[in-house]
Each structure stands twice: as structure tokens, then as C-alpha cells.
Design a protein around this nucleic acid. Structure first.
Length: 571
DNA sequence: TTGACCACGTA
DNA sequence: CGTACGTGGTCAAC
């Protein structure tokens, strides 16, 4: 039986700061005191406390969570909250601490350029057993792993996390944003746990099916380098035999491809597929080249090498997940998890006896815009399954035009024929449009902005040596970026609240989220639980929307399907 | 070896 | 002169 010690007196939701080193152990610091548990008992102690109390675990980053190898419900992730409060991606303890004490990160030992110049770096003054230097920064010897050197240091490191969390909380409380910044901090923290779980658990893949799909594009798995080279030549020849006089063209070199096309009478500024697409049928080399590009993508990025590198013996595709990027705060994933070509999606398949419950949010960004702007008329439009229908009716134009206009307004697109419809939007939905304009104007002026949930979107300065036209285009770029980040970032917040709500509601069942894709969730569940999980995902969406934008009146819709293969879900 | 650019997949 | 991300190719500058 695990002795709970200082954990015994905890109440639900109370902070329990932890620092963990597999060599030294687990330090736990609460408002009542501290204790250290031997490495062998660390995971069990956390699990027992989770069951008995359910505190809010506190750590510097989800590395601690991943290292413990347990599952818990709630946490405060200092790195995630740092990204929320201060923008950007880097969120190591030195940066977190510096930001919370209004010290420039560049002056932190081990981080800034100063360190490169000053050999040895850091301020050696003060007590080396104090993690905080006289200048206020964390001591580099601690941030580079020295905190894990002894039991007292583990305790000090967890205690430091408590001080940092208190200051983060204070700053969140002081924010004035449309949403609930503390609620966002909770969701972002949970999203980091979800990211760690996704990285560890992986996405179920039918490896045989994947190999067959790859073979259909690039042929059988080569048994040697020579065979691989022969297959490459074979693919290349299918294109080059249509290009007289260009047989030696390297298809992987865009400049050479452009020259080849020029010799055949196609004078193009670049050789991107969308530019070649209109010339399909005009010359066989165009069609062959487009097919070659598709096969080449599979061969290089999603081929046999990709399977070997990223798919485990257990048939799980694993990549590194991050709970937020450094811009608007969307989740990211490596190993191709976020850009798997549609052609390979049949290979994403549930285990035998299991299913994938797929849910994707419909028209998420305009619905989010309605919520964050509070535009009454636009909110009314969200009551329809198809938001663009009432917008079209109100503007007196067809649906396709209305959709283009709404997207143009949100993303700042100016090409295409949206002009008249945009003016209609200004008249019909002035509040929503003002929200977008305000974001754009802040960006143009170089002012940072915050999303609905409180994420700081950092702007950047125009380079000092920019001429007038460069300065104008830099300002315009910031305007587009800011307007996009306001909407995309808010959508990411809602999405993550939804995802972590689903995570919480499935915690006691075998069902698990296996993929997050910006507006889409894939849950792997036993077939018998499918209907229950689907219903739960819908309820979770309502719950998340109510927490993210209480009283907004906006209706969010999700398309839900129970499938065996991801590809079945697309219509 | 590194960084820029191209190209292309996803949302 | 929609934005964001990750990946892999070539090329030029180390």
C-alpha cells in the first residue's frame, strides 16, 4: 500500500506540484509540505492519489507526465500556459521563469546571445543550491538538468513550479479577453497530456493495406539499393519518353523541369501542379508529370521508408505531438500524421472488433467568428446546418458566392470575385466584420493581440532597412496573419476544449482518441461502445462550446460516423 | 553540414 | 497579393 504522505490531505483540484527523475525519485510539493518518493514507487503514488483525490497535477512540461507513464485527469502545464500568456513556442523553464519576472529571455544564462559571448555564462554569485540567481534568472546548472541531482533539489524544483504557477494564474486573472483565460489554461494543459498520450499510443494502421497502397503507386518493396534505383528510373522514363530532347532532365530539379516544359512550348513561371493542371491533355508529358509527382511524393515521403521509421511492430503509426504550435495554437504532429494523403487513409483502420468514431466540426471557423464577435445576425445564421444558406439569402446572392465572401473576409483573400459580396457582408454583419478589421489593424500596426481564449499572438517589427513598399507589404502580411490567427486560434481553443472533454469522458473506458486534425477527432473504441462514444462526442461538443463561449447562442455542428477505416468517413 | 527555395500534402 | 504546419528534394554556401 502506498503511503500518501502530504498527498493525503489534498482536496480535489488542489495543486500538487511534482518533479520527477527516474534516478532520484518523485518530489511532491503541496500547500502543506513536501515529500520525496523513491523512483520505484513514483507512478503508483501518483495513481493512488489520482484515484483517492484527483488533484490538479503541476509540472514544468508534459515531459514529466510522459516520463511518469501514468494517466491523470487534470494538470497545470507551465509550458502550455507560458505559450498561452506570452505567445511563441519555446517554453523551457528558464524562459518561463524569466517571462514571469519581466526579465528578457535573451539575458537568461544558457538561452540568449549574451551566453555565447560570455564563456561560462550565468551569474555565479549567490548560493549554488538556490535555483534562482541574484539577477533573478534560474541558474543554468539547474535548468540544464541539475534540478534532478538530489532529493532536496527535486523538492526545490517542484516548489519553484508552484511559485511560477501562482504568478501565471495571477496574470491570467488580470487579462481582459472575450473568453475565460483560466479555462483556456486548463484546456491547454490537458491538451499537452493528450499530445503525450497520442505520441505514446499511436494511430492504428493496417500495415498490409498501407504496403499495398504504396505498391500501387511505386511498385513492390525494393530488395536492394539497385532495385530501388531501377524503380526510380522506370518511373522517370514514363515521363521522359514523352519529352524528345529532354531525356536527361532531372525531374526532381524544378529548374530543369521548367526548362523541359519550355522546350515543349509551355512557358511557365514555376512548375507547381496547380499551374500544370490546366494543361492536362495538351501534351502527354503534362499528364505523366502530374502522375509522377503523386507517385514520387508517396515514394519519398510516405513510402516503405516511412512505414519502417514510424510504424511499430504493434501496427501503430507514431509521431511527436505538440499541444500547440507557436502561432495560433493549433496542435501539430510529425510523421505525416497531419498531412497523410487521402490515398493512404484506407490504411488507417480499427483493430479487429473495434471501430473508429470520426467526428468533424462543420464550418467551424465562421461559427467561431460568430461566437467571438457576438454578431447577433451572424449568430442566427449558425442555427442552420448550413450557415452559408442564410448568409446567401440575406445578401441576395447564391450560396457559392456567399461562402467565398465569408472565407475571403476571414482570411483576407482579395483575388477572385468577392468584392460586391464583401460589401454586402459589411452591411449585413457589421459586428463580425469589425472584429476582423480590428485584428487586421492591430497586425498592420504591429500590435500584439490576444485570441478569445487569451492566447497572445505576437507581431513582429518591419525591418529597419525596409523601403516604403517593403514596409507596406510587411504591414499587409501582418494584417493577414493577425486576422487569420484571431479566427484560427479561437477555433483551435474550442477544438482543444472539445478534445480534452472527450478525453475526460472516455477515461474510464477503453476508448481512446487516436487522432486530432484541427477540426476532426478520431476515437478508437470497441465496436460495442460505438454508439455510446458517438453520443458522448456530441455531448462533449455542447459542453465545450458552453465553457468556451458561454451564452454565445452559437450552434456548433459535428458530422459523426462510425467506420472501420478512416477513408470510409469521407463522402 | 546548414539554410534557402521549391514543391506538396493536410486543415 | 488567405494562413498554419511537416517533409523531402536540390542547390549554394560553408
Amino acid at each position: 500500500m502506498t503511503e500518501l504522505g502530504v498527498l493525503a490531505g489534498l482536496s480535489p483540484g488542489e495543486l500538487a506540484a511534482v518533479a520527477y527523475s527516474p534516478e532520484v525519485g518523485l518530489a511532491i510539493v503541496t500547500g502543506r509540505g513536501a515529500e520525496v518518493i523513491d523512483p520505484a514507487g513514483a507512478a503508483a503514488a501518483v495513481e493512488a492519489t489520482e484515484r483517492a483525490v484527483g488533484p490538479r497535477w503541476l509540472w514544468w512540461s508534459n515531459e514529466t507526465y510522459a516520463a511518469l507513464g501514468v494517466r491523470v485527469a487534470r494538470c497545470w502545464d507551465l509550458a502550455a500556459v507560458h505559450r498561452l500568456l506570452f505567445g511563441g513556442w519555446p517554453a523551457d523553464p528558464a524562459r518561463i521563469w524569466a517571462a514571469l519576472h519581466d526579465l528578457p529571455a535573451a539575458t537568461a544564462p544558457g538561452l540568449g546571445q549574451l551566453d555565447l559571448l560570455a564563456a561560462g555564462g550565468g551569474d555565479s554569485g549567490g548560493d549554488a543550491e538556490d535555483a534562482v540567481q541574484p539577477d533573478g534568472h534560474l541558474r543554468p546548472e539547474w535548468t540544464s538538468g541539475g534540478w534532478a541531482r538530489s532529493r532536496p533539489r527535486l523538492v526545490a524544483w517542484a516548489a519553484l513550479a508552484r511559485r511560477a504557477a501562482a504568478e501565471q494564474r495571477r496574470r491570467l486573472d488580470a487579462l481582459t479577453v472575450g473568453g475565460d483565460a483560466v479555462g483556456t489554461a486548463y484546456a491547454e494543459s490537458a491538451a499537452e497530456m493528450l499530445a503525450a498520450e497520442l505520441s505514446a499510443d499511436g494511430l492504428p494502421l493496417d500495415v498490409t493495406c498501407a504496403a499495398e497502397l504504396i505498391a500501387s503507386y511505386v511498385g513492390a518493396r525494393p530488395g536492394s539499393e539497385a532495385e530501388a534505383a531501377a524503380a526510380r528510373r522506370h518511373r522517370d522514363d514514363a515521363v521522359l519518353r514523352h519529352a524528345d530532347g529532354s531525356e536527361s532532365t532531372d525531374l526532381r530539379n524544378p529548374a530543369q523541369v521548367r526548362s523541359m516544359l519550355g522546350r515543349l512550348g509551355f512557358d511557365l513561371p514555376d512548375t507547381r501542379s496547380w499551374r500544370l493542371e490546366p494543361f492536362r491533355g495538351a501534351h502527354p508529358v503534362i499528364d505523366e508529370l502530374l502522375a509522377w509527382r503523386k507517385a514520387e511524393r508517396i515514394a519519398t515521403t510516405y513510402g516503405y521508408g516511412w512505414l519502417e521509421q514510424n510504424v511499430g511492430a504493434d501496427g501503430r503509426l507514431r509521431g511527436a505531438w505538440s499541444g500547440s504550435d507557436g502561432a495560433a495554437g493549433r496542435m501539430t504532429a510529425s510523421a505525416g500524421l497531419h498531412n497523410l494523403p487521402a490515398e493512404l487513409r484506407p490504411a488507417v483502420a480499427a483493430d479487429a472488433g473495434w471501430v473508429l468514431v470520426r467526428a468533424d466540426l462543420g464550418q467551424i471557423e465562421p461559427r467561431v467568428l460568430a461566437a467571438i464577435s457576438g454578431d447577433r445576425a451572424f449568430v442566427r445564421a449558425t442555427l442552420e446546418d448550413d450557415l452559408y444558406a442564410p448568409v446567401a439569402a440575406r445578401l441576395g446572392i447564391d450560396r457559392a458566392k456567399a461562402k467565398v465572401a465569408v472565407l475571403a473576409a476571414m482570411y483576407g483573400q482579395t483575388s477572385g470575385a468577392a468584392g460586391e459580396a464583401l460589401r454586402g457582408l459589411e452591411r449585413a454583419y457589421p459586428v463580425a466584420m469589425r472584429y476582423l478589421h480590428a485584428a487586421r489593424d492591430a497586425g498592420r500596426a504591429g500590435r500584439d493581440l490576444r485570441t478569445h481564449g487569451g492566447r497572445l499572438v505576437r507581431m513582429w517589427a518591419t525591418p529597419a532597412d525596409a523601403d516604403e513598399s517593403a514596409a507596406r507589404s510587411a504591414a499587409a502580411a501582418r494584417g493577414r496573419y493577425a486576422r487569420n490567427a484571431a479566427v484560427q486560434g479561437a477555433a483551435a481553443e474550442l477544438f482543444k476544449m472539445w478534445a480534452v472533454t472527450v478525453r475526460a469522458r472516455t477515461a474510464e473506458s477503453p476508448a481512446r482518441i487516436v487522432l486530432c486534425l484541427h477540426d476532426e477527432l478520431l476515437v478508437h473504441a470497441p465496436r460495442a461502445d460505438a454508439d455510446h462514444v458517438a453520443a458522448l462526442m456530441r455531448t462533449a461538443l455542447d459542453e465545450a462550446a458552453a465553457r468556451w463561449a458561454p451564452g454565445s447562442g452559437v450552434r456548433f455542428v459535428a458530422d459523426l460516423r462510425v467506420v472501420e477505416r478512416w477513408s470510409e468517413a469521407k463522402d
